[in-house]
Design a protein around this nucleic acid. Sequence first.
DNA 1: TCCTATAGGGCTGAATTTAGCCGTACTTGA
DNA 2: TCAAGTACGGCTAAATTCAGCCCTATAGGA
Lengths: 128, 128
Amino acid sequence: MTYFCGMYEKKIPVELECGLHVFMEVISGKWKINLIWCIHSGIIRPGELHRRIPRASRRLLDTQLAQLTSLGIITKTVFSQKPAKVEYALTPLGKSLIPVIAVTAKWGEANRPLLEPLLQLPTPTLVQ
Amino acid sequence: MTYFCGMYEKKIPVELECGLHVFMEVISGKWKINLIWCIHSGIIRPGELHRRIPRASRRLLDTQLAQLTSLGIITKTVFSQKPAKVEYALTPLGKSLIPVIAVTAKWGEANRPLLEPLLQLPTPTLVQ
DNA sequence: TCCTATAGGGCTGAATTTAGCCGTACTTGA
DNA sequence: TCAAGTACGGCTAAATTCAGCCCTATAGGA
């Protein structure tokens, strides 16, 4: 099992105090929820996924797919044909995530009119 | 209204394609869900919050509280006493977030036994 | 006077994530 | 032969977030 440039060992310990953090650790990553949702919708091959999420680089999509795979959210099946063919699928754990994501998405859509303009604005921050 | 070191204008546009992203933009930040949950539980003053979340720096807690305030998730009331006194409270929008957070936390707790060990492991990544 | 508590900010550097370029190897179809 | 598709990885630099130190000012109590 090859994993891109490498594996990265965190230097700051992961925060898992409560279930909230567990959930966040799993889905944080710019395109992970899209990927999960696409796979759930039947978009299961790397190329298809990239066409569906064109704003992301193939590079990053591959990495985040690998992260989801290493957490047991999705599985990756490699068909040893020429040319190679790859398919992703949700595991039972991944499927259990679907209704949770649906709830959060519903909240986001309901409050989009309010929040979208605010989220474009500059944010309070530490730097500068 | 003073906002710490400054306001930061993002150079990479925010992703708000679907409700999932709206939700993620609101709560991503290392301690935001803790802060929201604590305020919901009646921990409403900066000092109390810091004692409740001691692993976070006061600095970062203040910043994330300011971010939540600027999005209308919480309100900040400054009592002009000596010494000053500050209280936070959830807005209706913030309160609407509570059941959503509860759902995600429930999922996280249910799958903690499975995921906690995996999340400690090195992650597939681009660098190195 | 000194220690504590209240609330807030300046500053530096590290850690982490993302963007975006390029190249490999193979196969099919025009 | 050439373009386009399949899938994968090397590499650099930017963007973004976070850690952790320092400081101010006020007031109360020992």
